[in-house]
Design a protein around this nucleic acid. Structure first.
Lengths: 335, 335
DNA sequence: CTGAAAGCGCTAACAA
DNA sequence: TTGTTAGCGCTTTCAG
C-alpha cells in the first residue's frame, strides 16, 4: 500500500501491477501497444485501488484539461439558471465543468475575472465563460466567451439577449392595456443590459406619443432591497403610476410586495412587468408578466461557442443576441 | 515576449527580469533573501506581463492549493443558497472556492462524487464539501464534509438541520390552528431529510391524537412537477384536506399554485406550510409559512468545519445539526 | 510490447 | 543575495 493519507498515484498502481508508470499511463489513455493481459492486470489494480488520474497533473502535462470554467461574480437566480444551461450544453461533449465564484464581492474585488482567468487558463481550464464581467480589456490566451457583458462592444465573443426589443415589448404591452403613467424601475447604470432596457422603455413611450417623465424613473440597481425603497417612493406619490416596468424579475417581485403592503391590489390597482423570466417569476402570486430571456439557452450557447473556439472550429456569429419575448401572466391588467 | 498563444509563465518573467525562476518564485511568495531592487524589478515585470502563477502548477508542487471544492449534484435554490453561505465562510480565510456540478445528472451518474473527489483531492482542492451525496462509502485522503447526506450515519462529518423537529413544529402549527385533515406532500424516500420530515409529521399527529391517514400522504419527491400532480389529487378529493404540509418550499409553492387554479383561496380555504425557507418562499404571494432551515449557515458551517479539518484543528462536533424554526407568514390560517 | 527519461510550471532545499 | 537542482503526477517520445 501507499503511504496512508496521501492519494493513490500512478506510481502506486504501477508498483502494485509490477509495470512501469508509462504502461499504466498507456492503459489509462487507451493507447495501443499494451498486451492484453498486461492491460487487464493494470485495470484490475486501478479499480482495486480506486485510482483516478489527477486532473492537475494531467492538465499541467497536456495543456489540455477538458475542463471548462464558468466565472461568476455571485450566485443568484440569473447565474444559477445560466449554470443549468451550461450543464446542459456540457453533457456528451467530454468536457467537465467548474464554476468559480467571486462570492458576491464584486464591489471590493474589481478584476476578479482577470485574476482567475490568469491563474486557470492554459492550465486548469481550456476556456472560460465570463458571466457579466466588469472588465473588458483582458487579453487571454485561452478562448473566452462573455455573457451579458458590461459594455456594448466587447473584444471577445459574447452572448446576450435582445434587451432593447424586450423592453419595448414590455412597455408596449402596458401601453396597449391603456396605461399612460408607466414608471420604470431601472437597473445598474454600468450594465449594458440595463441601459438597453431603459432605452427600449423610452422608445416605446415615444412611439406611442406618451411623454417621458424623469419623475417616473427610479434606479433599483437590479437589487431587491434598493428596489423596494424606490418602489415605495413611486407608489406613495399622490400621482402614482398605474404600471411599473421593472428592469428585472427580482425587482419586479419586490415591487409587487411593496404594492401589497401599501394595500394596492396587483394587477387591479397596479400592473407590474418584469424582465428575465426567472423561475421565481412564474411561482410568484400573481404570476409575473415578464420578458422572457432564454437564460438557460444563453448558458448553453455560450458553452457551445466556447467549445467550438477551443476546437478551433469556425463560429458563425461571435456576438450572439438571443430573442426575447413577452410572457403575459397575471400581474398586468387594463388600466 | 513569449510565444504568442501560450500563457505567461514564471520563466518569461525570469527571463525578462534577468533573474532565475527561483528568485521570481521567492518574490511571488514573499520569501526573505531577495534584494530590494531585485524585488522591485521583478514586481515591475510581473505587472507588466500581467503574470499570475498557475494554480495547477502550484498545487501540484505544494500539495496545497488553498482551494476548497464544493461538489453539488445540481444547481437549484437549495444548493445555490448553500453556495452563498460557503462564499461567506470563505472570505478572509485565504481559501478560494470552486464548484463542481454533476449537472443534474444524478440519476444516470451515480458516484459522481467519488470520481470528482478522486480526481481533485490531494491536488486541486485541499478538501471538499459534498452536497446531498448519494454515496457514503467513499474513502478520501482529503477532508470531506457532507451536507444533508442521503443516509443517517455518515462516515464523514456532516452538517444538516433538525428535520424532525422542524416537521413537528410545522404540523403542530397547523394543529394549533384547528386543522385536523392535514395532508403531507412527502419528499424523496432515499433522502434522510425526507424521511425525518415525514416522521415529524406523524409524531405531531400522534401527540395530538389525530389519526394518521395514508390517504392524506402523497409523494412529491421534492419536485415541483410531481408535486403539482399530487396536490391536484389531494385537493380535488371530495374529502380534501384543510391544510397541506409540503416537504419543501418548492413543492409548497407548487401546491399553492394548484390550489389557486382550483379556485381555492390560500389561506382562507387551504393552509400550506413549506420547509426550507428559500428566498422564493418570502417573495411568494401569499408569503409562505415555512420551516426555516438555515441553509446559508449550513454552507458556512460546512466550510468552517472543512477548514478546521484541513488545518488539523479539533472540531467540536463532527455531526452538526442546526436548529430549525417555524416562520409564520401568510399561507396559514385557522380552519 | 515495455520502460527509461524528459519536461509541463512551480517551489524548496542547498550551494555558490 | 542568488542560482542550481530535484521533483510534485502525469504523458510522450524513443530505445530496448
Amino acid at each position: 500500500m501507499q503511504k496512508p493519507g496521501s492519494r493513490v498515484t500512478i506510481r502506486d498502481v504501477a508498483a502494485r501491477a509490477g509495470v512501469s508508470v508509462a504502461t499504466v499511463s498507456k492503459v489509462i489513455n487507451q493507447r495501443y501497444g499494451v498486451a492484453e493481459d498486461t492491460m487487464a492486470r493494470v485495470q484490475a489494480v486501478i479499480s482495486e485501488l480506486g485510482y483516478e488520474a489527477s486532473l492537475v497533473a494531467q492538465s499541467l502535462r497536456n495543456h489540455r484539461s477538458n475542463v471548462i470554467g464558468i466565472l461568476v461574480a455571485d450566485l443568484e437566480p440569473f447565474s444559477a439558471e445560466l449554470l443549468k444551461g451550461a450543464g446542459d450544453a456540457i453533457r456528451g461533449t467530454g468536457f467537465e465543468l467548474v464554476v468559480y465564484s467571486a462570492g458576491g464581492r464584486t464591489g471590493d474585488m474589481v478584476g476578479w475575472e482577470k485574476r482567475y482567468l490568469s491563474r486557470l487558463s492554459g492550465t486548469l481550464v481550456d476556456g472560460a465563460v465570463l458571466v457579466t464581467p466588469t472588465v473588458v480589456d483582458l487579453q487571454s490566451n485561452a478562448p473566452v466567451v462573455a455573457v451579458d457583458p458590461h459594455t456594448g462592444s466587447s473584444a471577445f465573443p459574447t452572448v446576450d439577449a435582445d434587451n432593447l426589443r424586450g423592453a419595448r415589448l414590455a412597455t408596449e404591452h402596458l401601453l396597449d392595456l391603456g396605461h399612460r403613467r408607466i414608471a420604470m424601475l431601472a437597473g445598474r447604470a454600468d450594465l449594458q443590459s440595463a441601459i438597453l432596457r431603459q432605452q427600449g422603455y423610452r422608445e416605446a413611450l415615444a412611439a406611442a406619443g406618451v411623454p417621458f417623465l424623469e419623475s417616473l424613473v427610479r434606479v433599483g440597481g437590479y437589487d431587491p432591497g434598493l428596489s423596494a425603497l424606490a418602489a415605495r417612493e413611486l407608489l406613495t406619490d399622490p400621482r402614482r403610476p398605474t404600471a411599473v416596468f421593472a428592469a428585472n424579475d427580482v425587482t419586479a417581485i419586490a415591487t409587487i410586495e411593496v404594492a401589497l403592503h401599501l394595500g394596492l391590489r396587483v394587477p387591479e390597482d397596479l400592473s407590474v412587468v418584469g424582465f428575465d423570466n426567472i423561475p421565481e417569476s412564474a411561482l410568484c402570486v400573481p404570476p409575473l408578466t415578464t420578458v422572457n430571456q432564454p437564460i438557460r439557452t444563453m448558458g448553453e450557447r455560450a458553452v457551445d461557442m466556447l467549445i467550438r473556439l477551443i476546437h478551433k472550429q469556425p463560429v458563425e456569429r461571435t456576438h450572439l443576441t438571443l430573442a426575447t419575448e413577452l410572457v403575459v401572466r397575471g400581474s398586468t391588467a387594463p388600466v
